[in-house]
Design a protein around this nucleic acid. Structure first.
Lengths: 340, 340
DNA sequence: TTGTAAGCGTTATCAA
DNA sequence: TTGATAACGCTTACAA
């Protein structure tokens, strides 16, 4: 059933039917009702490919996902799209995902735009020196960044967690417990979120009169095995830390695993503060009190990004910014620093 | 730059240019080369919306992802799409993901098809009594199932792991170690893969002259907290098992966590066999020997599904089937059953 | 308030 | 081997 056929049956022109269906004001209420009823009964649905060709609008949001070196997709991603996907569904948008090699990334954005495949994109994993912001602004394609870059903050829309603040608070908490050698198992530091976490961590140390020690900071992709590896390195170093901050729940798990292997007890032999993205498949911090953690749900961030982007696409707003505050949950993985 | 403009500059008709670009045989080599060269130089790319409208082909694969009760996306999903996405990218397809409520699911498939949004779909999480197979066959939309349903196996294409065999072997291994009370922490049993795992498990028991005990089987969504919960229930039951099979690496982790809390050592106080989907963010079984596991990469399954579906769409094949065999990796989480 | 007709950028049919 | 021209199914000036 297409427009032509539908309007033939109604004895109206395609124009009128199209207008009635799309809520144009100049259609009489009576006609509109009759059209709506017929469309419903005959189960008419416009062909989106035709609509897109005619309007240039795709009702689709693009996500470009680079396969990082290890050929893996960021494990936090599935929760992000759960949040975003729900919003897309509710607001009538499709989600187009393009898995690409890192090198093809910017080309993919260009192609998306030029071909009118998407009305807007979500930018994932921004780096400090990220050329995508300028590029997307140049192309005038609506976008929202999940996180921030080094660009001026009002030059683009973003949804971010106050990472610096969160890690500063967490570090201060450890300092107040008496810890002086505090390590950080961070994400990859070209990523802005990781850089900011380090800033917060160092600011707390400096504020306490301590000098940050590079030997106490690790940086790696945030997967379980890396938490394990870094915890081992830290313990084996000449002057091991008494407390560790982890940038992800996955590295936290890896670090915990290593402590177990060494027979060490979290909170007593080593204090650990994790970062809990509230991944839906893992236990939530705060429930069993096992973990002291900075907490902020990534799924929520996904839905905020989606709403913000669609508002922008539909011309409801200009650039917007949302800075979420992370919670700090105290559990049993932290405790006072050992004497001497 | 569009076809019209390009052909004007070439002094050729749109028809010829289109034919040259699409590899039709009736174009002279000379013309073809000239056209190709111009297209390249002027950076021409056909507008896919126009192509789709004209051809009815979308070069897009759909994935319908129902949000299950807990509003979460299957955590194994991100690895699956890493595998599939790479193939799509290589073979020129887009991935369209629709996150829907469980109730909207079949409607979404219908809409996808009717509107020519996708050329085919991947069916996730098939159940034994799954109405999607009949529906998709009726709609004549190409599809590949990741897993199998209760339908005749040659009535659709699928990629699956031999779950029954894998769990039969794993159970037999435990039996040979002397275990007699062997539990299974399974996935949701309406899902075919879970039902088959249970079948394999029970077949091994029966083959050994034992009677399956319903009290030793748990069934729940395969996330960490459920492994933890079920391990606890099993230990607290009147006659606890001496060995446990887990249907997922996540429930395995949860079960291990509970053992630790109770001060029990895997492989000595309780034998555990896990299922390792080789999720990219977790340690791989077999590396540190911590876990005895049935192993089959979900990412590989994703790429197989994608290739099979595209072959089908492009008319290269009819229904096909691929049964992958899981590996069995022996680690330290299993050991002889305790005496008496 | 409704209708006519052009346009969106391709591919496909038919004729030359 | 090439070219006119009609689809594909919608939206949108412009006219009535």
């Amino acid at each position: 059933m297409n427009l032509k056929e539908l309007s033939r049956r109604l004895g109206l022109s395609q124009t009128t039917v199209s207008r009635a269906l799309n809520g144009y004001p100049e259609v009489s209420e009576k006609t509109r009702r009759r059209v709506a009823e017929y469309a419903e009964r005959l189960n008419y649905q416009p062909n989106p490919n035709a609509t897109r060709l005619a309007t240039g609008k795709s009702n689709t949001i693009g996500h470009v996902i680079p396969l990082s070196g290890h050929d893996m997709i960021n494990p936090h991603f599935s929760d992000f799209i759960a949040g975003a996907g729900e919003v897309y569904n509710r607001r009538g948008y499709d989600m187009l995902i393009s898995v690409v090699n890192a090198a093809e990334q910017s080309m993919t954005y260009k192609t998306f735009h030029r071909n009118k495949r998407v009305d807007g994109v979500i930018v994932h994993s921004p780096t400090i020196d990220d050329d995508r912001i300028a590029m997307l602004n140049r192309m005038r394609i609506p976008f929202v960044v999940h996180g921030r870059t080094g660009d001026p903050e009002d030059s683009y829309s973003w949804v971010d967690v106050d990472n610096a603040d969160a890690f500063q608070k967490a570090t201060r908490y450890l300092l107040e417990l008496g810890h002086r050698r505090i390590a950080l198992i961070n994400g990859l530091e070209p990523m802005t979120f990781a850089a900011r976490r380090r800033e917060g961590y160092e600011a707390a140390l400096v504020g306490f009169g301590l000098k940050p020690d590079k030997g106490l900071v690790g940086s790696a992709e945030m997967i379980e095995p890396n938490g394990h590896k870094w915890m081992g390195r830290l313990l084996d170093s000449p002057a091991p830390p008494t407390a560790v901050l982890c940038s992800s729940i996955l590295t936290t798990m890896g670090a915990m695993r290593l402590l177990r292997e060494r027979g060490l007890t979290p909170g007593r032999d080593m204090s650990i503060v994790g970062y809990d993205d509230r991944l839906s498949f893992l236990p939530s911090s705060g429930e069993d009190k096992a973990l002291t953690a900075v907490r902020s749900g990534i799924r929520l961030a996904g839905s905020h990004c989606a709403d913000m982007l669609i508002d922008q696409i539909e011309g409801k707003t200009g650039n917007r910014h949302l800075l979420l505050e992370a919670e700090f949950v105290i559990g049993n993985s932290t405790g006072p620093a050992p004497r001497n």
